[in-house]
């Protein structure tokens, strides 16, 4: 541990209750059409334990330790190149890491016996550049993995996709192709596509930073709604408005290290590290 900024990780943290609505009590027609299946473990949803990662000689992550409890929304921020994307990609094993341990809902992801495709199917991920499949219609984008991975029938998968599309306000676009939608619309489809798999946790990697300013709001609205419905979320973003509104905790990274890991009020009140203070004043000033 390089700084005193890191709070101790309690082995069984209490679920955070700072969101407006408890899970499953949202209004009719919520983004979460059914309660996600959760294994009967008592540990955190995501536990990142002392993770280090190297690209050749270059160390991208240095002893990162943190956890995300069920229902918690954790925002990850930090300067460009600080390792935010790398850390979040390690969580669903899109990137391998050399040292430490990550556990998702009780499953050790670096364990050779872990069925990674199965694990990933339960962890939703939203990318900076949407990554919809351009050769497939919106409907097919939404149903492909439902059918191939979860084994749902065509009708069931399409109905589920359509219901989620309606929730993100894009039902009328089901027959179109991704290239025919605006960036904001594509990102909402991407969120719906991830939700169609009934994920137990959602990862977001700068979901709004590739968008024109006027489209940021529509995507954030969907994410806020999702957070309020009780989805467990780990969100890399510089949208501090979003963090203030729905985050429980904020993690600040710099040079591959978790420098700050604090409750939202604490983080915005008085970030203890100088680096976090400099970063905050820079991004909040515009």
């Amino acid at each position: 541990m390089t700084s005193s900024a890191m709070p101790p990780v309690s082995p069984v943290p209490e679920p955070q209750a700072a969101v407006d609505a408890a899970p499953g009590t949202g209004p009719v027609g919520t983004l979460l059409t059914e309660c996600p299946p959760v294994a009967a473990t008592t540990g955190p949803m995501i536990a990142i334990d002392n993770v280090s990662k190297w690209y050749g000689d270059f160390q991208v992550l240095t002893n990162c330790t943190t956890s995300v409890t069920k229902g918690e929304v954790v925002v990850v921020c930090g300067p460009s190149g600080s390792g935010k994307s790398t850390l979040i990609k390690c969580v669903n094993a899109l990137e391998p890491f050399q040292k430490g341990q990550i556990t998702v809902d009780g499953t050790k992801i670096a364990d050779k016996k872990t069925n990674l495709p199965k694990l990933r199917s339960r962890v939703g991920m939203v990318f900076q550049h949407f990554e919809l499949f351009p050769h497939l219609s919106i409907t097919d984008n939404l149903s492909l993995a439902q059918r191939k991975v979860l084994g749902r029938g065509k009708a069931e998968a399409e109905a589920k996709g359509l219901a989620l599309l309606e929730r993100v306000g894009l039902k009328a676009h089901a027959h179109k192709f991704p290239g025919q939608l605006s960036g904001g619309q594509q990102q909402r489809v991407a969120i719906a596509r991830a939700l169609a798999m009934n994920p137990i946790v959602m990862l977001f990697d700068e979901p709004t930073s590739a968008l024109d300013p006027e489209m940021v709001g529509e995507v954030l609205d969907v994410m806020v709604e999702l957070a309020r419905e009780g989805m467990t979320m780990m969100v890399v973003t510089h949208e501090m408005g979003f963090a203030r509104k729905v985050a429980n905790r904020v993690i600040f990274m710099d040079k591959g290290e978790i420098v700050e890991d604090a409750q939202k009020e604490e983080f915005f009140g008085s970030p203890r590290s100088e680096r976090a203070q400099t970063f905050l004043s820079r991004i909040l000033s515009h």
Binding site: N92, K118, R120, S121, F127, F133, L144, A145, K148, A194
Partner: peptide
């Protein structure tokens, strides 16, 4: 690269991702 990352993130296996996402494109 993001296309195969997205396919993997949805739980598709290598062959599913190749057959449904990468090779058709």
């Amino acid at each position: 690269k993001g296309q195969s990352a997205a396919a993997s993130a949805l739980g598709l296996t290598y062959w599913q991702s190749m057959g449904n996402v990468i090779l058709p494109q």
